[in-house]
Amino acid sequence: MSGLALDRYLPRESPIHALDARVKFLVAVAFILAVSLLPAGAFASIAIAWAAIALASGAAKLGPFRPTRNAFFALPFVLAALPLVFTRPGEELFALPLGVFTLRVSVEGLVAFLTIASKSWVAVQAALLLAYTTPFHDLVDALRALRLPTIFVTTVSFMYRYLAVLSDEASRMLRARAARSGSRGGRSGGRLRWRAVVAGRIVGALFIRAYERSERVYQAMLARGFEGTVRPRASRALRRREWAALALAAALLASFEAAAHLWIPAV
């Protein structure tokens, strides 16, 4: 089954893996929030945040640079911030004449762009580290304990359970389509609209298979005594040590944020 490819969890014996999922989730969100709040050009502070990830990843026995290496995939979105380089007014770094237009690159624009790109990169690493060290069902339990409405918790956990099955079905249908996509030279492939319609029909067929599967799942649940609600697993209260860990993380992040705005030099 493709279950492995659909889960980033990497089991290790480490204090970070052992930490309660609620604590990890809250710390990760707070960390990303703190990074998002850093001022423009605060590259030293962003480097400190990055070092903290590397340290935590090392402590989790994943090697310090695994999140760094695997976080590049979020980069295409950087495109959205690229125009800043040209549009932000400020000291001109260089100008690029392009026919009737001139692209002017300003120092301020470059700094703003690099700030956004590096913040985003560090934030993705934090989210990756959370996924590496926390099994998804623990994360779902954490969300339940954090009072997420039941309908979301059950939807997300059922979704996760059938993700591999349905992705697999989609892959097999796409493969069967590819196997018939032959050509003896000349114009082939059909028209664009036809290709889009075929994709839509595959989606439709996938829906019917998914729906029929959900009916079988429901019948199997009834057969095992399901009465309409999924009884939530009771979650234990946070231990004192876990509260302490949360408080420590909050204090660290708050002082980091204050230092970044007041003392740590920015470009």
Partner: peptide, 17 residues
């Protein structure tokens, strides 16, 4: 209850098509 979850997985898989 199961339907929403399975159909959420469906939307995820449909985005692969």
């Amino acid at each position: 209850v199961p339907t929403l979850g399975v159909l959420a997985a469906f939307i995820f898989a449909a985005q692969m098509v």
